[in-house]
C-alpha cells in the first residue's frame, strides 16, 4: 500500500479570544488520511473546523495536540512544503504585482529547476487557467474569479504532489466553478493528490473519490464517497409499460420490487427499466444525521 500524502491523528485545537472568553474547541481529536493521486472533499458546515484544520496543516495555527505526517514523515519540513500547493479561502494577493510577477514570486520560493523552466511553467499555467491575456496586468485589476484562478495557478506553480484548496469555488459564477472543477480533475489525473474544502455538495459528489466530513470539530465521516452514499438505501425505480402507457413507480425494498415485477408480468405488462436509486450527497447528509440546513452554503 502506498504511503498517504497526509496523515492526521487526534488533532485538537482550542481557541480563546480575550482573557475572560470561553474556550472554543475548534477541533476535538480529528484523524484522517489522504491517499496519493486521489481527490478528497473536505465537507462540513461553517464553523465545523475545516479552515482550522487546514491552517494547522501548514503550521499557520498551532495545534494543541495530535500528529500530522506528510509523505510518511512527521512535521512540516521545508522538503514537505516544497511538494505541497495551497490556496487559502478568500485569497487576497499582492495587488501591485502583475499575474506573471506574482507566479514568478511564488515559483521562485519553491522552484528547483532553471529560471527558463519556471518561465515556461508560468506561461503554461496562465494559459491553463485562462489568464494568458491578463498575465501582464496588475492583480488589482483582476475580478474575483480571475483572482481565484491565479490563486490556483500559484498553488500548482511548483508541480506539487499534493494540493490543498480551501473553498476554491466560493464566489465564482457557474462558468468559473466549472473551470475550477475541470482544473481539479486534470490535476488529479496528472497524479497530484487534491484535498479541497467545499460547501458545494453536488460538485464534491461528482469530483471526490473520498470524503472527510466534520461537524462541530468532530470527524463524522472519512472514507469513500461511494460507501457514504451506499450506507443508506434509497430504494428502486421501476418503469413499466402496458399498451404503450409508461408507468414509473419507486419501491423501498428488493422484496417489494420483486412483488411488483411479478404482478406486472401477470397482467401482461412489460418491464422497461429497473434502477437502484442512489442517494445524492445532500440526501446522505440529511439521512445520516447531518443537519441539512447546516450543510448548505
Amino acid at each position: 500500500m502506498s504511503t498517504p500524502v497526509l496523515e492526521i491523528r487526534d488533532l485538537k485545537k482550542t481557541y480563546k479570544r480575550g482573557w475572560n472568553a470561553k474556550p472554543v474547541h475548534a477541533l476535538k481529536g480529528v484523524s484522517f488520511q489522504i491517499e496519493p493521486g486521489t481527490i478528497t472533499g473536505f465537507l462540513g458546515a461553517n464553523g465545523a473546523g475545516k479552515t482550522t484544520t487546514i491552517k494547522c496543516l501548514f503550521g499557520l495555527s498551532l495545534p494543541d495536540s495530535g500528529t500530522i505526517k506528510y509523505f510518511g514523515q512527521e512535521g512540516l519540513t521545508n522538503e514537505a512544503k516544497a511538494k505541497i500547493g495551497f490556496l487559502p479561502e478568500r485569497p487576497y494577493f499582492y495587488e501591485y504585482l502583475t499575474g506573471r510577477e506574482f507566479l514568478r514570486f511564488y515559483g521562485k520560493l519553491s522552484w528547483k529547476d532553471t529560471t527558463s523552466e519556471l518561465e515556461k511553467r508560468i506561461s503554461q499555467l496562465l494559459d491553463r487557467v485562462g489568464l494568458a491575456h491578463a498575465g501582464d496586468r496588475p492583480l488589482r485589476s483582476y475580478s474575483k474569479g480571475m483572482l481565484q484562478r491565479i490563486g490556483i495557478a500559484q498553488a500548482l506553480i511548483h508541480k506539487p504532489e499534493f494540493i490543498i484548496l480551501d473553498e476554491p469555488q466560493t464566489g465564482l459564477d457557474p462558468d468559473g466553478r466549472h473551470e475550477v472543477r475541470e482544473i481539479i480533475k486534470e490535476t488529479a489525473q496528472q497524479g497530484t493528490a487534491v484535498f479541497f474544502s467545499s460547501h458545494l455538495l453536488p460538485d464534491a459528489e461528482q469530483l471526490c473519490k473520498n470524503l472527510v466530513i466534520l461537524k462541530q470539530g468532530t470527524l463524522v465521516y472519512s472514507g469513500s464517497t461511494q460507501n457514504l452514499l451506499g450506507q443508506v438505501e434509497k430504494g428502486f425505480r421501476l418503469v413499466s409499460a402496458k399498451s404503450d402507457v409508461l408507468t414509473t413507480q419507486d419501491y423501498a425494498s428488493p422484496a417489494e420490487l420483486q412483488i411488483a415485477i411479478d404482478q406486472i408480468r401477470k397482467v401482461g405488462g412489460e418491464i422497461r427499466e429497473v434502477r437502484a436509486l442512489r442517494l445524492t450527497l445532500e440526501e446522505a447528509f440529511a439521512q445520516i444525521g447531518f443537519d441539512k440546513k447546516e450543510a448548505r452554503p
Binding site: F58, L60, A82, F86, L87
Partner: peptide, 9 residues
Amino acid sequence: TILTLLARP
C-alpha cells in the same frame, strides 16, 4: 497573503 507565503518552504 502571509498564509500562502508561509505555506512555501
